[in-house]
Nucleic acid binder design. Structure first.
Lengths: 256, 256
DNA sequence: TTTGTTCATATGTTCATACATACCAAATAT
DNA sequence: ATATTTGGTATGTATGAACATATGAACAAA
């Protein structure tokens, strides 16, 4: 019998890709695979993904599992499905084009691209009223405080203050120049899952003007952030002061 | 044979709830039902939802369909699942408690709670370079411009400028004092789905200080927003100027 | 008292299957 | 030439069944 078996463009081998014996759920493996796949320029340019039935056959799994994976990406707005047509990468060119009005975006912040640490200070601070309330711990407890100034080559852009919950078990001797959340994941079994943020605008005071090299009274984007683990336990409390002339915060929101 | 058939607390009748003949997908009906169900104080207080198998049996549908519905709510962080235990309402108390550091939140903005319109101005503006680029239309095209000042009883808080894509078909005679997106939905078949935002901090200039009743040089939270329909077509281009002393922007973010 | 073990229960994953519905384009009728 | 029908293809919805795995509680052993 002649099986057609189209090659899926941009995909490595015929199979070997999905590991049925892995502990990782199949849908998760597919999701991963798709993420890599759709990075390819052809898909970025609007080419339809291989259809679900073919893909399932190709990977040796059921269509439901393929759907489970694509569903996630659709929910994340990475993919767009169209009934009777197919699935393709969402046109996110809008984002990049519209973001021209700012030179710095949230993504860069998250991935730490191009950013370097200007200064790093680690200290232990005794919890005051605010910290004890945020972390729900006694007022006298010592909390690890991490201060960072980060920016691009020529200038500082953001001033971070991080407080870490004692539960995480940081000693202060860790290498904080490495990506923070990776470090927490690998060395402290702490996974950062959600972060809740509040953003406001303030004016630079003496300290901020000194740290960020701006004039007193310059506008500063102020962000408070609380990071949780999957069990919704607080991991980190983070204050961020961004130079408003160099930084814009970009967000996608869904409307019910 | 004795069937146990537990009553599901807080639920109306035994059935009649799920309408198999409805055009609405079952999973959607279940989702709706769950949304209403978990509003009940008992579930808000941490009571476990009825388990999936029971619920499926109770509603006369398959477990998969129940899961499809709950999945959505889990993704929205309304529900938390725990293997071997059950599903319950996510403890969102964290949000509300932590938000005390600001008096105004994003939610209030979205729902328009307590806000009233101070002034309203409708005009037609000829697209300049920026607008023609954003809307991808000719430079000479006329675009409906809506200016609003909104706030609470005693003071203005935010100054909005909205531009609407000609495709939407607004005439300028609409009642813009009604909730905007409802109006678009009902009267212009235009559903607002996602909005992409950029947030920055600026200083109040003469115009803003006049409109928002603040001093020149006061910090202003500046937001650009583009609103799309489900087909990712641009509906609205919106500029928002928020008094930073009265407004904080609150966001939940997921970390991959 | 503490530490294993077992067991019931609930969610987590996956499959095979079926039918519904939207879209597009080619064939056909007007 | 221009509607209209129709078939092919794709996603959308829904079922039922099975097995995997995490949790917590009851129970038993150290």
């Amino acid at each position: 019998m002649y099986e057609h078996m189209n090659k899926i463009p941009g995909m490595q081998q015929d199979s070997f890709i999905i590991d049925h014996s892995s502990v990782l759920p199949l849908h998760y493996q597919v999701e991963d695979l798709l993420r890599k796949l759709i990075e390819q320029p052809e898909y970025q340019n609007g080419k339809l993904l291989p259809n679900e039935v073919d893909l399932a056959k190709k990977l040796g799994i059921s269509r439901n599992t393929v759907r489970q994976a694509t569903n996630k990406l659709v929910y994340e707005r990475l993919l767009v499905r169209k009934k009777g047509v197919g699935t393709k990468v969402a046109s996110n060119n809008i984002t990049t084009k519209l973001n021209k009005w700012s030179s710095f975006t949230h993504e860069m912040d998250e991935k730490g691209v191009k950013f370097k640490n200007y200064s790093l200070k680690i200290s232990w601070e005794v919890a005051d009223a605010e910290l004890s309330k945020v972390f729900k711990i006694d007022k006298k407890t010592k909390i690890l405080k991490l201060e960072r100034v980060r920016g691009v080559a020529s200038e500082p852009i953001v001033y971070f203050i991080s407080y870490f919950h004692p539960r995480v078990g940081l000693t202060g001797d860790e290498d904080f120049s490495k990506p923070l959340y990776e470090m927490l994941e690998n060395e402290h079994h702490t996974t950062a899952v959600i972060s809740r943020e509040g953003i406001s605008a303030i004016l630079a005071d003496d300290e901020l003007s000194e740290v960020l090299k701006v004039a007193v009274g310059d506008p500063i984007l102020f962000r408070k952030r609380v990071v949780f683990d999957p069990g919704e336990r607080l991991i980190e409390y983070n204050l961020g002061y961004y130079r408003a002339d160099r930084f814009t915060y970009t967000i996608d929101i869904e409307r019910g």
